[in-house]
Every structure is written in C-alpha cells, then in structure tokens.
C-alpha cells in the first residue's frame, strides 16, 4: 500500500492539546498575565513589568515563608526517611503479620488531608484531645495555638504520622525484592548486621529511597491543608508555609499581582527541584 503524506495526523493530538490548554496552559498564562500587571477595580490593568517579581524576591515575608517551608521539608525528611527504613526493616517478611502490617501502614495514607488536619487539631486540644490533655497532665504547658514551638511540634508530628507509611511501603517493596541468597552469602562471609544493611539492603533500597525523598520533598514543599486546618498558619506567622501565604495574599488580601509573581517563583522552584531529582535518578540508573 502506498503511504499517504499529509498533516492530518495532527488532528489526532488535538484533543490532548485542548485538554492541556484548558487544564494547564491557559491557567498558567492567566497567572503570568496577572504577574506583570497592576490591577485596580473595574477591571483596570496597568503594565507593571518585573516589578512584582523584584518585590517578591526581595520581600522579607516571602523569604521567611520559603525558609520555614525548606526547614519544614528538611525536618520531616530527616525524621521520616530513617524512621521509614527502620520500620520497614522490622516488618515481617512472611506469615499473617504481613497483611496486618501492610493494612496498618496504608491506613494513614487513605485518610483525606483535611480529615488528618481535623484529627490532629482535636487530638492536640488541651480540653478534649488525648495528646493535649495527657501532656498537660504531665505538667507540660502545651498549647499549639499560642506557642510557636508547640505548633511546629504538632505539625511535624502530624506529617510524620501521615506520611512515614509511604516511605515504609516503598522501602519494604525494595527489601522484599532481595533474594535469600544474599542474606545467606552475607552469613557465610561473616557480615555483621550493620554490614548487611550497609552493603545489601541499602544499595537495594537506593532507588525507592530516591523516589521516597522526591515524593516527600514535593509534598511537604506544597503542604497546605493540614497546617491550615490545625494552626491556620499561626501563631503569628510561625507555621505560614509558602502555599498558606500564597492563599492569604491572593484570596485574603486580593493582591493578584504579587500573588501571581509568587506562585510563578514557587512553581519554578518546584520545577527546578524536580529537574535536579530527575537528573540524579537518571544518572544513577545510567551508572548501573
């Protein structure tokens, strides 16, 4: 059969193009549009150029929200990754314990985020919450509404409770893929428990750990719902992370220009981080 040469095939990608246009390109361009203009009532727009971007990049408020967010991501990675590994290492490999552990681990992941926030909001309350009440009885003046340290403590514990399971499940998947022969050979080579972890288990978990770090970083960097429900960003601005700040600025203060500039910068940071992770992972694969 003779091949026909024309450009009709482009119509095939039209639905996808339309979909992407409506779901991503048009909203994004709207944001870009806001970010370079100043808005007044009556739909009056004035060209502002890079003014909002300069303002954002030099603003104390943006810097501190970014700093808080990076610190938050750093802390939860520091806790969730090692904790996830430790739990995965101690999970049973066979028998009735396997399904029980897997279900228990999956439970927090299945709970909607605002419900998680509500659970911890109530859990931490001094009057009716188990955690808050117990801490108070122990003589600790726990109050996440007024004490920034306590608010941070609550938000971090909540995230650890919610998301460590993900790290556990990923690590566990990596661990069960290791054939028995490796453990037997290690025994014969006289390897210590630490050497088995360092030279057999950790290298096998490497890949899934990278994915876990990536997912946990992205999610925590974009965290909104849970801290919003628990602390609302307070006390003061102490738990105001980037997304909370963004919403405050855009919806609360209706500063569309700066908010648009901020969300673009936010977006570019995430894009940059994804690219770094992607490069690290593909390099790692190429090396294998």
């Amino acid at each position: 059969m003779e091949k026909t040469w024309n450009n009709k095939a482009w119509f095939m990608v039209l639905p996808v193009l339309l979909l992407v246009a409506f779901s991503a390109v048009i909203p994004l361009m709207t944001v870009v549009n806001y970010s370079v203009q100043d808005t007044f009532g009556n739909n009056q727009f004035f060209w502002a150029g890079t003014e909002w971007f300069t303002e954002m990049l030099t603003s104390e408020r943006f810097h501190s929200a970014l700093g808080r967010n990076l610190f938050f991501s750093f802390i939860i990675l520091l806790i969730e990754i090692p904790l996830g590994i430790v739990i995965a290492l101690n999970m049973p490999r066979k028998g009735w314990g396997v399904p029980v552990c897997l279900v228990l681990m999956a439970l927090p992941l299945l709970i909607p985020w605002n419900v998680v926030g509500t659970i911890w909001q109530v859990f931490g309350r001094v009057d009716i919450g188990l955690l808050g009440h117990t801490l108070e009885r122990l003589g600790i003046n726990y109050n996440y509404v007024q004490n920034p340290m306590h608010a941070w403590f609550t938000v971090i514990i909540m995230d650890v409770w919610h998301w460590t399971s993900l790290v556990v499940l990923l690590c566990y998947a990596g661990l069960v893929s290791i054939p028995d022969a490796f453990y037997q050979a290690a025994k014969i080579d006289g390897a210590s428990r630490w050497a088995v972890f360092r030279y057999i288990q950790l290298p096998k978990m490497n890949r899934v750990l990278l994915i876990a770090v990536l997912l946990r970083f992205m999610d925590s960097f974009m965290i909104y719902t849970e801290p919003f429900v628990v602390t609302g960003g307070g006390p003061g601005n102490s738990t105001t992370f980037l997304s909370i700040d963004l919403v405050k600025m855009a919806v609360g203060q209706f500063d569309l220009g700066p908010a648009a500039a901020m969300s673009l910068i936010y977006f570019l940071i995430i894009l940059l981080m994804s690219w770094v992770f992607y490069t690290v992972m593909t390099n790692y694969d190429a090396e294998r």
């Binding site: 022969a181 050979a185 025994k187 014969i188």
Partner: peptide
C-alpha cells in the same frame, strides 16, 4: 552458627556486593 563453622559457600546465582 555459619560463621563459627568457617565454611565457604557459592550459590546458584551470583551474589555480589554491588556498591563495592
């Protein structure tokens, strides 16, 4: 234990320590 018996064993599929 295996260590105390001082035995060497080679398995059906190669077992190597990847990162070394």
């Amino acid at each position: 234990s295996t260590q105390e018996r001082n035995i060497a064993q080679v398995f059906q599929f190669p077992v190597i320590y990847d990162t070394m």
